[in-house]
Computed example of a mutant assay.
Amino acid sequence: MIENQITERIIGCAIKVHQNLGPGLLESAYQECLFYELKKAGPKVQKEKPLPLIYEEVKLDCGYRMDLLVEDTIIVEIKSVETLNDIHLAQVLTYLKLNDSKIGLLINFNVLQLIKGVKRVINKYKN
């Protein structure tokens, strides 16, 4: 599956979750439901995948975890906040760098229309 098809499928599943649950729940509820929907839809998906930090060639487990990793390439970071801000974007960019991934989705479920809460994030340093 190519990246655009994967992100399209993820967003479709997220919209389904949002239509069923609406805004206002905890991030963990949306994460579980989106994980379930993605598993039903078919792509390989991992939840709470550990993300080690490499510092001076030493692999350190600092407790970072990606909300979802789809097809070993797309990082999905789930939020349920009033407004996405720069620190949320920085988090996804850092995860992209640490995982050596190109594309991430930052999804805020605490909106009336989910499409307004979806941000596609590109690691411009990854080919």
Rank of each mutant, 00 (worst) to 15 (best):
G12D: 01
T73S: 13
H88P: 13
G117C: 12
C62D: 04
A29S: 08
E71H: 06
I107S: 05
F35K: 08
T83F: 12
N110D: 15
N127E: 10
P52Y: 11
P52Q: 12
V81M: 08
V45C: 14
G24I: 07
S80D: 07
V45T: 14
Y64H: 11
I15Q: 07
E48A: 14
L21M: 03
M66Q: 05
C33T: 04
E48I: 13
M1R: 04
G117L: 10
A90I: 00
Q46K: 09
A14G: 07
A14N: 07
L34Q: 05
I75D: 06
E27M: 00
G42N: 12
N4F: 01
I87Y: 05
L93E: 02
M1V: 00
E57T: 14
V92C: 10
L26F: 05
E56Q: 15
E8T: 07
Y95R: 05
K79Y: 02
L114N: 10
E37C: 03
V58A: 15
K40I: 06
N108M: 10
Y64I: 04
L69H: 07
G63R: 06
K59S: 15
C13A: 13
L38W: 06
L96N: 01
I54N: 13
L60I: 15
K102N: 07
E48L: 14
D61K: 04
I10L: 09
E32S: 15
D86T: 09
L53H: 06
L51H: 08
G24R: 01
L93A: 03
I11F: 05
T94W: 01
L69W: 02
A14W: 03
S80R: 01
Q5C: 09
K97R: 02
P52R: 06
P23V: 06
I6M: 11
L26C: 02
E48W: 01
L60A: 11
L93P: 08
G104R: 05
Q113C: 10
L34Y: 01
K126G: 03
C62Y: 07
G104C: 13
L106Y: 05
F35R: 07
D61Y: 12
